[in-house]
Simulated assay, not measured.
Amino acid sequence: MKVKFNVKRYFQVLGISLAVIIAAAAVCMGIDFSGLNNEEAVDNTSTVEAADGKINVLLMGVDVDGLRTDAIMLASFDTETKEVNMLSIPRDTKMYIGNRYQKINAAHAFVDESGEIGGATATCEAVTRITGIPINYYVDFSFDAVAHVIDELGPIEFTIPDLYGDGVGMVYDDPVQSLHINLPPGDYQLNGQQAVWLMRYRHGNVNPSTGVFKGYVNGDSDRVEMQQKFLKAVVDQKVNASLILKIPSIFKDISSEIKTNFTVSEVIKYSKYLADLSSVNIHSYSLPGEYSSDSANGDVWIPNMDEIRTMVQDVFGYPADNITTDNPKNA
């Protein structure tokens, strides 16, 4: 259920809050805008209350249809050290979703026996099952929200690399999705549309001489790394005291394009923490694993459960003995 905002009532008290900054790291400033409506119910069945000095937020970028997740990122903020650990989870991660083993991005779109779509709740459950990290809050956003927010914040300085050494850069055309990416190598002042292209780019067009898509050398893991670099650039360039002046305009553009379980009191409570955040305090990780071919699901990311357990325990500070990719009913 979409959460409503009240711009006038809370604009004066918010400042730069945890919600803004963490959502900024994945939606490029997309959450605390001016007060969430406490009166409207949200689905918290797969989240828990924040505790132990940590705040864990799951960020989900959905595809054009608003069903499957095109990007999944878990941000864990330590209120004592002021550090943010961000874990990117490949959309192709194979695990038990709904009634069979499939990609984790299907959790958001899976329809259960009651006819309800899983949405953010199902994705939260899947991420906690595979990581053991309790999720306190979620932000579910469209890529239109990313474009709108970047346009409000102003251009982002970023360098597009020559990915394939042929001077082409990021070029891809998908008429079905009305997606046409065109980012040749070079230094950019990225606008909203270009930022979306950067975040959505997975591979190039088919090479006519080979019949094969040109893509990142390491597949989705390289894509995740590129997204993380961009998000850090956003934090370094746009998180400052002047951001508050842009909040009303940002809200008007994206209030209909995000869903979250943050409340007004929580936003205000966390607003004191991250006014001085920089990318130095943000540490990026990707879910350990490797790509494999699956007869039912195509190319999938096979999680390395031993490495995930070590990372969760050593980096995020949570027990991970019981994490699994299997059917939760068999646990």
Rank of each mutant, 00 (worst) to 15 (best):
V64R: 14
H108K: 03
S178K: 15
C28F: 11
N38K: 10
S142G: 04
L190S: 12
E266V: 05
Y270Q: 06
E152N: 10
S221M: 13
F262I: 08
E40V: 13
L198S: 13
E49K: 13
N6C: 09
D236V: 04
N240H: 14
G289A: 04
D326Q: 04
K82P: 01
I150K: 05
D187S: 13
L287W: 02
G15N: 14
V20C: 03
A241Q: 09
L87Y: 05
A233S: 15
L18M: 09
S178N: 14
V315H: 10
I130P: 03
L274A: 12
G219H: 10
D65E: 14
V264M: 11
I21H: 10
V20T: 12
D43H: 08
G119P: 00
Y273D: 09
L163I: 12
N327C: 02
S265D: 15
I31Q: 14
V48L: 01
H283P: 02
A120Y: 13
Y291H: 10
Q194I: 01
Q177E: 13
I302A: 05
S286A: 05
K246M: 10
S17L: 09
D220M: 01
N38V: 02
M95L: 08
R202I: 05
D187H: 11
F11W: 15
I133A: 11
E40S: 14
V300R: 05
A275F: 14
Y188N: 12
V315Q: 04
N205R: 10
Y101S: 01
K4R: 13
Y216T: 10
D253N: 13
T121F: 01
I89Q: 03
L18V: 11
A145D: 06
D253P: 00
Y291N: 15
C28H: 11
V206Y: 06
L198H: 05
V280P: 00
S286F: 09
I181C: 06
V235W: 02
D166F: 07
D144T: 15
D166M: 00
T121L: 00
K259P: 00
F143W: 04
G298M: 02
M170G: 03
F110M: 09
S249Q: 15
Y285V: 00
G289V: 05
G154M: 05
V127E: 03
E266N: 08
